[in-house]
Write a protein that binds this DNA or RNA. Structure first.
Lengths: 204, 204
DNA sequence: CAACCTAACTAACGTTTGTTAGTTTAATAA
DNA sequence: TTATTAAACTAACAAACGTTAGTTAGGTTG
């Protein structure tokens, strides 16, 4: 048994532990999405995972921790992508459009977790709630800067920045409720259609 | 004591009962908005109302009934207004704009109840949930017809109707989280700014 | 006055909640 | 083989849950 093999074995046990924790987190996201954080019991969740409720505490610290992990891990992804987009050498229109495309992609690929972020963040305990709101404010501030810069550059109309900001962000939320693969709409098409409306409006 | 007086007395006792029930409903809306339906207990609610939890059962049948009453009474208001707008002799653009204005007005004037409708409808019991979804589908179908008609008439671009429909509806949802009288924005201005973006987009 | 009713109360019910303690099982390491 | 460890289990806790039962106080009606 050489060291490579040892690493493999270590990996596989570690991976097993991580994957059980991750199984709990992903089943939790699914359950919270369906029944809400308050409406989901640890026993419900345990059944989905396939173990007893008490056994989950070998992998997670508390029910609150599950919510925190879901909200912040998704939140961080949004932050990272926005930072990435800010750096890209493209027009402000393209930046907004690629942010819209990213939101659509996130909803389609991580619908459960995004849904929890959107709907259950208010059940974070008070300490984490403050942290979450700060993160969200930061995100909104960065997006507002993009819009302001776009207006100054002449790419955007002189719209009310707050209104534009929140209209863009919340206009994406219906996708979470509406999207089903069975509708046969690709995420690229969806992002394009939403962008078209937000960029050019519906008026002929 | 004439019959007018009798009516008055009857009215006042009736009114007292109604107003206590209504107090429960409005406090419930406020509490559900803040903590969610599942996160709000009857004891919490009773404290806000100023009586014991058990005493509330003189006025309401169950916790579920409170949620139903809130969701359906607000839902009916939306239905009625949409029907009203459909009848008005004006362009399809104006119809959409006046629907947007109505949504803004509802959120500002009945923010708590609208918030419950938006966030807690999924906790309706299964029978009422079916009814609720039917109501919502009906609403969406009517709005979709307005958009389709507007496109056919040439007032609107040939946008994807579903996308336009849901973008309009959910783009209004941030108002619920954002609006504070202290911001000094009137609901008319707000509706105008939102309409401007949805009608003409942000692109210069 | 007597009968009645509304709306409040206290007390308690049977569940369900998140979580802990202690134990068992099975796999790995020495 | 023996010791160790991770991860499952059962049992139980104390608290909170929605709700019901029974009672009481105060105002209304006949």
């Amino acid at each position: 048994m050489n060291s490579d093999c040892l690493v493999d074995i270590t990996m596989s046990t570690t991976k097993l532990k991580i994957s059980k924790r991750e199984k709990i987190l992903s089943e939790a996201a699914k359950l919270f999405r369906e029944k809400g954080f308050g409406g989901s019991s640890m026993r419900d969740l345990a059944e989905k995972v396939g173990i007893e409720a008490a056994s989950m505490y070998n992998h997670i610290r508390s029910k609150d921790e599950i919510l925190e992990e879901i909200c912040f891990s998704v939140g961080r992804k949004y932050d990272e992508q926005l930072t990435e987009i800010e750096k890209q050498p493209c027009s402000f229109s393209e930046k907004i459009e690629s942010l819209i495309a990213f939101h659509v992609k996130m909803i389609i690929e991580n619908g459960d977790a995004v849904s929890v972020l959107n709907n259950d963040w208010k059940f974070l305990n008070s300490k984490k709630l403050v942290e979450f709101k700060a993160m969200r404010n930061e995100y909104e501030k960065h997006l507002a800067s993009l819009i302001t810069a776009g207006i100054e550059e002449g790419s955007f109309k002189p719209v009310n920045v707050s209104v534009a900001l929140f209209t863009i962000l919340s206009s994406l939320r219906w996708v979470e409720l509406w999207y089903k693969p069975s509708r046969g709409v690709t995420k690229e098409d969806l992002a394009k259609d939403i962008s078209a409306i937000l960029m050019n409006g519906i008026k002929a």
